[in-house]
Nucleic acid binder design. Structure first.
Lengths: 338, 338
DNA sequence: GCGCGGTACTTAACCGGTTCGGTTAACCAA
DNA sequence: TTGGTTAACCGAACCGGTTAAGTACCGCGC
């Protein structure tokens, strides 16, 4: 079964290669009758465009790039990424675009990948996650001219297209929740503060607790389950024990719950726990976890759509995707009487 | 900054395009002196090969394909996939191959993707996961001539290259463990039985329990947390309650633990729980979960290596990757005195 | 009758590599 | 000296599309 090319279609339809190309791409230059005839032949021969050939001449790769700068192990633990990738895929699939996914150890490698992709014309655009404060990837992407959608707050995006969730409002909602339950000393187990969204939440956490007159204790971690457990142990056993803890992802919240249980404490009787991101895991623990919930799969889809828009000439803009919603579950309760 | 091509290199090095191609690809046909000179010029100009052009003429795409036939939501819950993908990526990165990842709703769509990829010459080979009994993908891949490595048992692979873990031995170890603790009635929360590895474990579970003189109760599910919870509730509240339960993945085990807790029962006092796959989550619950452990990231790497081997002409063969090892944790204990 | 504009094509260059047949010059054996 | 090899390199075709430029034909207005 030899490859079927437009040359063959042209032969059978009795027209030239060029005409076939116009017909197949819905471009003017052929009559409706001819177009129909070409389409019919292409159909019969089960023609599919050769990506490489199209890319070579049209300079489009019909591929989006996504680089994840985390270890494979971390990625497997964090439900966020797979859900996000799934959402992106859903949109790409519709337009028969492909996703080039690369997993690298650090941001330096990530930047090297962008350079390579740009030089190779490997991708039409990239999706950039985990935006940092003063992110070095932003000037690089500008320099190499790679269209990009950033997943992060507009204040960090330096004018590039970004999609963000309103972490500030969400943090306010989270603290309103624990404050209204009567908590006065609130802990926070945060990610690394060079991550943009962590930094944003830090700010929001501080101003909200000031507004509500709450005392706070914050521990920064690396997002892993282990460090979430360690941070929780520290909060629970050293110094004044907070009666509520807000986590930066659900993995650390689950680890925290386990530590709380292990210390012979009870949630919510002794401490109220609030997770962030709300994957299914939050409904599988006992007690179930209160969480700031948003739809991560849809988040990925939204980002992919924005990248298509950008390629079609949309001006760079900040798009608010959603504000995570508070979902109250069993891990919420009033502080212990003490 | 115009694109730098081998034509430019040829001009500067004073040789023909062809010679440059030979030099850059380490092929005979140029002298060492010329090769060195060309390499130096290419280096200076920061030349990178254009993938599309190379693919078009050489008919290699330097891309592997992986299709996941699960919903994005399921994928985000299951730590297995992201870890596996990460492991594959590690190997591909070294050889600067790319991974084309596609998420589709079902096997029919997956097969359509293979057809398309084969026609487009989109990928050099594919990795196929979740092999079924009498898997329809196997004849299709043969027909369209797509090199493939199957992730699954040799008995299901019909002579194609596959990488497998010895689930039978692992299941024996798991049941030896619970039997040695004194359990006589063992439950099993299994995945859907049309999945090959589930089927294998079903067989192994039956023959091992027969060997050990155990009574059994098996519930089949769809691998999700919800269905794992439902299955556990059924085992715990309807009919004779098993004193130990073996799960087919860790997500369901965690959901099961939550149900056990919710029913006012204790692990391991009332029931011993054994998970499968052992992601970090098993160490984050309270009590921690006994699990059949294997390194999923390395599993992905192994599979990727085998696909490279296959493309380099290795004969199709079954490769035993590993046997999951029993890791005993807090959820294991003797059956209640009753 | 002539020029003009538009439609429906054809032709051929081009994208950036790979590869194959052919040429040249150096070397070697008879 | 001559015929035959061989290494080193050149030139051009080719992969399968896209697209700018060119052509043939038709209808229309003046």
């Amino acid at each position: 079964m030899a490859r079927v090319t437009i040359k063959e279609i042209a032969r059978r339809a009795g027209v030239s290669k060029g005409a076939v190309s116009y017909a197949l791409n819905n471009q003017p230059g052929v009559s409706e009758a001819t177009r129909a005839r070409v389409l019919k032949v292409a159909e019969e021969l089960e023609w599919v465009p050769n990506r490489a050939a199209r890319q070579l001449s049209a300079a489009r790769s019909e591929t989006f790039g996504l680089v994840l700068a985390r270890s494979a192990k971390t990625l497997s633990e964090e439900p966020f990424y797979m859900g996000f990738v799934g959402g992106v895929e859903e949109v790409l699939g519709e337009k028969s675009y492909a996703l080039a996914l690369q997993v690298v150890p650090d941001i330096a490698e990530e930047m090297a990948t962008y350079r390579k992709w740009a030089a190779e014309r490997r991708v039409d655009g990239v999706i950039v996650v985990d935006i940092r404060v003063d992110d070095p990837r932003i000037p690089l992407l500008r320099k190499v001219g790679l269209p990009a959608v950033l997943v992060g707050d507009p204040s960090l995006a330096d004018g590039m297209t970004c999609v963000w969730t309103d972490a500030t409002s969400a943090m306010n909602a989270a603290l309103d929740h624990v404050a209204s339950l009567g908590h006065r000393l609130v802990g926070r187990v945060a990610g690394p503060s060079d991550h943009g969204h962590v930094w944003i939440r830090d700010q929001a956490f501080n101003s909200a607790s000031e507004r509500l007159g709450l005392e706070t204790r914050v521990v920064h971690t690396d997002f892993s389950g282990e460090s979430g457990a360690a941070a929780t142990r520290k909060l629970m056993t050293e110094g004044v024990r907070p009666t509520a803890v807000v986590y930066d992802n659900d993995l650390m919240a689950i680890a925290g719950l386990s530590v709380v249980n292990g210390l012979g404490l009870k949630a919510p009787d002794d401490v109220t726990l609030v997770a962030w991101d709300d994957s299914t895991l939050c409904r599988l623990t006992h007690p179930t976890l209160t969480a700031m919930s948003h739809n991560i799969v849809a988040y990925g889809s939204e980002v992919a759509h924005r990248l298509f828009d950008l390629l079609e000439g949309a001006r760079p803009e900040a798009h608010l995707y959603s504000t995570p919603q508070l979902v109250v579950r069993e891990s919420s309760g009033p502080p212990p009487a003490s």
